[in-house]
C-alpha cells in the first residue's frame, strides 16, 4: 500500500510538473502572446486594457450639460477625501429653490483610482477616464474642477 502510494505520488508529481512546463514552452514559442507595451515608442497606437483607470472625469454633452445633482454621495464614498462637492441653490423659473453643484473639486494627487465614487454615484455623472500622463510641474495643477464653467444639470436628472 505504501509502495503503491509512493509510486503514484512520483508519477502524479512528474505529470503536474510536465503540465507546467508545457505551458511555459507554449509561451516561449508563441511570441504573439507577449503583452509588454513599449510605451513611449507606441504612444500613438497604445491600446489600454478596458478596465484601466486613469482619473475621474465628468462627461458633458454638446449643450454643456452634466448629470450631477450635487448629492455628495461621491464625496462620502471617497476613502481619502479627494472629492469635494461645493453646492449652491439655483432658483428655478417657477420660484423654487433647487440644489445644484457650483464646483466639483477633484484632487488627483490624493486619488487612488479605487472607483468607489463612480460606483456610489446614483446618476452616473462621473466616470473613470483612461488618460494617464498626469505629470505636471506644479502640484496645484492636480486639483481640478470637474464641471465645465457655466455648465448646468441635464434636464430630467433628479
Amino acid at each position: 500500500m505504501f509502495i503503491k502510494n509512493y509510486i503514484k505520488n512520483i508519477f502524479s508529481a512528474v505529470k503536474s510538473l510536465l503540465v507546467g512546463m508545457k505551458r511555459t514552452l507554449y509561451y516561449f514559442t508563441h511570441h504573439k502572446e507577449i503583452i509588454t507595451q513599449q510605451y513611449p515608442d507606441n504612444r500613438d497606437t497604445l491600446i489600454l486594457p478596458e478596465r484601466f483607470k486613469g482619473e475621474v472625469v465628468m462627461p458633458h454633452n454638446e449643450n454643456n450639460e452634466h448629470r450631477c445633482t450635487g448629492c455628495t454621495a461621491c464625496e462620502l464614498a471617497c476613502p481619502n477625501g479627494s472629492i469635494k462637492v461645493i453646492t449652491k441653490f439655483d432658483i428655478s423659473p417657477d420660484g423654487k429653490k433647487k440644489k445644484a453643484i457650483d464646483k466639483l473639486v477633484y484632487h488627483l494627487e490624493l486619488c487612488t483610482m479605487c472607483n468607489l465614487c463612480v460606483e456610489a454615484c446614483p446618476s452616473d455623472a462621473i466616470k473613470m477616464a483612461q488618460t494617464f500622463e498626469h505629470s505636471v510641474y506644479d502640484r496645484n495643477q492636480l486639483t481640478k474642477t470637474l464641471n465645465n464653467p457655466g455648465s448646468k444639470i441635464m434636464d430630467g436628472v433628479e
Binding site: 511555459t24 509561451y27 516561449f28 511570441h31 502572446e33 507577449i34 503583452i35 509588454t36 513599449q38
Partner: peptide
C-alpha cells in the same frame, strides 16, 4: 531572453 519569453515579456 528565455525568462522573458516564458513570462510573456519582451
Amino acid at each position: 531572453k528565455v525568462s522573458a519569453w516564458m513570462q510573456i515579456r519582451l
